[in-house]
Amino acid sequence: MSAQVEPAESAEHTRSAAAGNEGAPHRSLAARLVARVGSGAVQVLLILIALFWMVPTLGLLFSSLRSPQDNASSGWWTVFTEPAQLTLRNYAVLLDNPDFVSSFGNTVLITVPSTAIIVVVASLAAYAFAWLEFPGRDWLFLGVVGLLVVPIQVALVPISSLYGGTPLYGSIPAVVLFHVGFGLPFGIFLLRNFFAAIPRDLLEAARMDGGRELTIFRRVILPLGGPAIASLGIFQFLWVWNDLLVALVFAAEASQPMTVALQSEMRQFGANIDVISAGAFLSMVVPLLVFFAFQRYFVQGVMAGAVK
């Protein structure tokens, strides 16, 4: 409960300070909402908004749980009056399709390593860029920042011909490598700026306490950088999981992920909305779980009380 009171209080402070400056009794709607997040009426409102936001998701879920005939003749909301419509048949069909099952596996095999490599390499590199001194560091970092603006499309052809002569072409590692290459600059940029904001004294204290760089990284930077690292992980995971373009270009038939499989399903059968919605729901639910698993890091204000 106290965790809820604190932000409300600090918002109150900010607000009164701002009001004092302007000498105006008004405060913005957003500020008033923030100040009242703890109160009952606002919580009810928030729940209503959240439910409204969930309607499309629920629609997809219920469509995937109804037969093709039902979906063709009435809207998904009829399940509320006729719950007997609900069936797991679409999922059974889907899971009987070996192509689809292997594409789900491929998606996992592409997404998990891409995300893991990016998070690990980006956080190590970001620490070096933020806190280690080596010649050319700032120029190198500027180079990384420059890479941020390279559009993915310009790399498709050159990388294809690069892969062309190697057994890599069409394989899962090829897709992973491409995602890592394009994910790293942003990851390094994001984390470096976050790590650089950690008070220098903390790192120096750890150094005095006998920490080597890797120890400091593991025991001070990683815990304090948790929120930023979790954000990067979540975004990267979502991006790679939902990617179609890179997979279309670089993944051969055998290594194609779910996005590609769903797309070809769509083409082959035209309107088999039932299987599609079941597949779409499956492909959506994993990123959601990942998000919920890490979302508390978004909210956590770990830095409070570090230095006065």
Partner: peptide, 30 residues
């Protein structure tokens, strides 16, 4: 780290993610 001297910082530089116990123990753990 190898000079074996301890410093008290003006900002205290306490590790915010660690309890008081772990803050004090940090150097010994390392």
């Amino acid at each position: 780290r190898d000079r074996d001297v301890a410093m008290v910082f003006q900002s205290y530089a306490l590790y915010p993610h660690l309890s008081v116990r772990d803050n004090i123990a940090f150097g010994l753990q390392l």
